[in-house]
Structure formats: C-alpha cells, structure tokens
Write a protein that binds this DNA or RNA. Sequence first.
DNA 1: TAGGCCATCTGGTCCT
DNA 2: AGGACCAGATGGCCTA
Length: 360
Amino acid sequence: MLTRLFSDPSLLPDVQKYSGWAEDSDDEDSKLKEEDQDTQEDTEGSELRGSSRTHSEHAGEDDEDDEVEEEDDDDGEDTGGDRPKKRGPKKRKMTPARVERSKMRRVKANARERTRMHDLNSALDNLRKVVPCYSKTQKLSKIETLRLAKNYIWALSEILRSGKRPDLVAYVQTLCKGLSQPTTNLVAGCLQLNSRNFLTEQQCQDGGRYGSSSFSMHSYPYQCARLSSPHCQPGSGSNSHPLRTHGYSAYDSLYGGSGSPEYNSPEYEGPLSPPLCINGNFSLKHQGSASPDNEKGYHYSAMHYSGLPGSRNTGPHNLVFGSSGARSGIHSENVLPYHDIHLHHDRAPVYDELNAFFHN
DNA sequence: TAGGCCATCTGGTCCT
DNA sequence: AGGACCAGATGGCCTA
C-alpha cells in the first residue's frame, strides 16, 4: 500500500500528509508548511542574493530552465574588475520552477527514506521474532535486539562447535552480554519460563547440582533435525526451521511439558526461549575486558531476577546474577572481536552446519 | 522532569 | 540526475 503510494510520485505530497502515519499527519503538515516557508524564504533569499551574485555564478546557468531569467546585470561591478572569477560548481538561481522541483525531490527523498526505515524496522521486527525472548507487548529496543541477536548467534555457534549441552546460567549470561538490565531481566525471565522443565530434568540428572558444564547433549529437535548431530535426540523435525523455534511443541515433546500455562501467556506469544544448549565455558572467553556499555551505565552486577509474575521460584537454581556471574557477562563486543574469537577454533564444520541449518 | 527510544526530516556522499 | 545510504537534528511519547 505504502509502496504503491510511494511509487507514484504524483501522490507523494498527499502521501506525506494523509497516508499511513496518521499520528504524524499534523506534524507532517506543519513540517511541510515550514518547508514551504523555508523554501519560500530560500527563493526570496536567492532572488535577493541574485542581485549581488557575481557574473561567474551565472555563467552557464541553465537553460533547461527556460524560466531562468538570464538575470543580472549588476554583475558588471563584480566581474568587471580584476577580481578572479569564482571557480567550482556554478550556483544556479532558484527560480520558482527550480524551487518546485527541488521541493518535489525533497519530498520524494523523504518518502523513500521513510519506506527505507520502515523496511529496516520490519526486518528488525522479524529479527525480534527469532531471537530468544519475543514479546509483542514488550518489544526489545532496536539496539537491544541487535545485541541479543549477536549473542544468540554466538551462543548457537558455540553449541555447534562444542556439541555439548550447555550450562543454563552461562547461556543466559552469554545471551545477556551487553544488554541493559531491563532487557536482561526480560531475557532471563523468558528463559526461566521456558527452561523450567529443563531445570527440573537437569536437577534430576545431575542430582540437583545445577550449573555443570559437562552435560550430555540435550538438543532441541529443531536443531537436531538440521544438524543431524549424533548427540541429538530424534524429535519433531517439523519444527526444525529457526523461524518456527517458537513453537512449543518441540519443547514439549522433549520435556513432556504439554502446555505450561506460561507458554500460553498473552504476554509472550512466541517461543520464549532459544535452545538451551550451550557450552558452559565459552562465556569465560570474554572475561576481563572493559565494556563501553558499562561506561554507558548498564549494570551487570547484582542483577537479581526474581522471575516473571506467576513464575515459580526455582530456589538455588533461580537465575540470580551475582556480581561475579554477572561480571562474567562482559559485553562481548568489547572483549574480543568476534573474528578474533573465531580464530581460536576451526569453525569450518560449524559454518557448514549452520548453512545447512538455515538454508534447508 | 530527565532520559531513553523512536520517527522523521534533512543535507551530504557515493554509486549507477 | 537520481537513488541508496548515512548521520545529525528535532520533536513526540513514555517511563522512572
């Protein structure tokens, strides 16, 4: 719709005023008026200036503009002397026609810029849906979405590389690296909700000793279906595409949690949590470096997540970020450049699997 | 009210 | 010339 409107230049001015962004229409109107005024002033100004412009400025003046008056004539005084002619692009007089064209160009450019930004935003929306913790009601900000996505990719890469079951705490810390505290809380909340079964099972397997990084691989079906990892368990391959990872069936089929009430919470429409597989060690790679985000005032320490409303307290397994744990979540952007980190491993097989994962 | 986030406008630069 | 991209400026909205 918008695209169609924008594709028709003749509609552009109207588009500016009446289409799509009703909430902005007044603003747009006023801005357009301002623009008109500015333009008007510009025109007037240029015409005023015209009287003092040098002859060289008019040399070669266009032509196409018919209406362009080959004015001035006052130039004699300017060019008549020894004054060197000005070089560089000739300034064209802003005739009404030229002003109009310029205005139209600007309007079209604004429309293009708007659609460009809308495209960018819809891409960001798509990204929000595939990163852990998707909520329509509490959208991640743009910057947080990008940070979380980066952390998520990183985490998944590490899972592929290590082939080990992740440590949940390290996983969450990794996902939350560089995120603001509210976002960290949100992500932790999402993960906790979705990981309840995971935690329960984990406690059983490990005798309640949560946090071990020596888990056997316990991957999600959608990963297994794509990666065909020997560690993977057979699962519901129908949900194998990352974009469908938000379906609960895969999780439920694995963990038997068919319909945890939280999963159906209106608050979280999507799959709240990504695969919990992660190498418990890889977050340690990033320890010890400063983070610009820290400088920005993000607080990683003493982050206590008490769970979302209605969520059970998991006691000692609750996602409580103490100062040490939280500090380990130093912003990855600032610890080691991503490519530097990748240099530490032979990643080729991982990339192959990732490619297969995302392109099948 | 300050600060964060966002949408939009705008001018500059680069590319085709 | 025109489009894409970018960054700065600006103002609105929301929340702590």
